[in-house]
């Protein structure tokens, strides 16, 4: 990958200062561990006490939890519990209480869709509340330690970024790191009597994104490869690109089989926002493609970033997703699209 441009570094700084929390346009950004007082001292702290964890059954074995960070997906059955993403550590107690209302079985697996703190900062607390399925040689060689805590599964780039190995940012506490990583296109697993596909989408929201497809429940948990609250968030410094993001949306569309027209069938839990199905993803893909095409055309005409911004390529979607305040402003989105198309 090319070295980031000056604008790329500016975006990197934004993600760093914002503590890698995405889609929090109105709230003060937390630091990378989710605390509101680290790199961003002086910003009003988010009142986690006031946050309630809402529970919405999706379908099959899958439930969606809505709190203050990214949405959490819970899959529960006879084998135990698997969750996708973990929000903030301050909310772990409430999240566990919400999970316990769904099932009293042990938490065995945590899957991280990507490395951002609003999806992973709660890893350590929730991991400790669970345990890893072990036995045979593994148990014999490592003893009880082998089963301590739930397994945290993610694409290898998530570990690389959280441990500070790449990205040039300080490591997060080791207890939050993935314990079980994969490289390549996908990792498959069988849990609670259904096949689960963890599908890596390269260079989209970041360079370590995965979507999680519960094949029998027929639910896709997308992480921030699809949100309903803002324009697509592209962490350019962490390898995100607009075209990768669109590939991710296309992959989600390809996996969905609706009942009729654009509705029902496969359900989609976005990184932030409401429960969705095909129609919502199509509208979002349509918007993202149209804006990409407009900016691509402007680049072809030789327009500078400032000229592109002045031409308002997002004008017709701004009442839906645009904002001039908070973390992911319209300008930052346009900058990210422009930069990654120029590469």
């Amino acid at each position: 990958m090319r070295k980031p441009s000056a604008a790329g570094r500016a975006i990197a700084l934004v993600f760093a200062v914002a503590g890698l929390a995405c889609a929090q346009p109105a709230a003060a950004p937390p630091d990378r561990a989710g605390n509101r007082g680290g790199p961003n001292r002086g910003a009003p702290a988010q009142n986690f006490d006031a946050v309630e964890i809402q529970t919405l059954p999706a379908q099959g074995r899958v439930t969606m939890l809505v709190g203050a960070g990214g949405n959490i997906t819970v899959q529960a059955g006879n084998d135990g519990i698997l969750i996708v993403d973990t929000e903030y550590p301050q909310l772990s107690g409430k999240i566990l209480a919400a999970i316990r209302k769904i099932s009293d079985k042990p938490l065995h697996y945590i899957i991280n869709t990507h490395y951002h703190g609003d999806h992973t900062a709660g890893n350590e607390n929730l991991r400790k509340a669970g345990n890893t399925i072990t036995g045979g040689n593994v148990q014999g060689d490592l003893g009880a330690e082998a089963s301590e805590g739930a397994a945290v599964i993610a694409h290898n780039n998530v570990l690389e970024r959280m441990s500070g190995a790449i990205g040039g940012q300080p490591a997060t506490p080791q207890g939050t790191w993935p314990t079980d990583t994969f490289v390549g296109e996908e990792k498959k697993m069988w849990f609670n009597n259904e096949g689960i596909e963890i599908i890596h989408i390269p260079n989209a929201h970041t360079d370590g994104d995965s979507i999680v497809f519960f094949r029998k429940s027929d639910v896709i948990s997308t992480g921030d490869l699809f949100v309903t609250t803002t324009y697509p968030i592209i962490d350019v410094a962490a390898g995100g690109t607009i075209n990768g993001y669109l590939d991710g949306l296309q992959k989600i569309v390809d996996l969905i089989i609706p009942v009729y027209g654009q509705e029902g069938g496969t359900l989609v839990i976005p990184g932030h926002g409401r429960l969705c199905d095909l129609g919502d993803v199509l509208n979002y893909r349509e918007m993202t493609t149209i804006i990409r095409d407009r900016i691509q055309d402007m680049i072809k005409k030789g327009m500078t970033l400032e000229q592109v911004k002045a031409a308002k390529p997002t004008f017709d979607y701004d009442p839906l997703y645009g904002t001039t305040t908070g973390f992911w402003t319209t300008d930052r989105f346009v900058e990210a699209v422009y930069q990654t198309l120029k590469k």
């Binding site: 809402q54 919405l56 969606m64 809505v66 027209g261 654009q262 509705e263 359900l267 926002g273 409401r274 429960l275 969705c276 199905d277 129609g279 919502d280």
Partner: peptide, 9 residues
Amino acid sequence: PPDYALHTA
């Protein structure tokens, strides 16, 4: 329903 519930046609 709450605002995070499914929207339909």
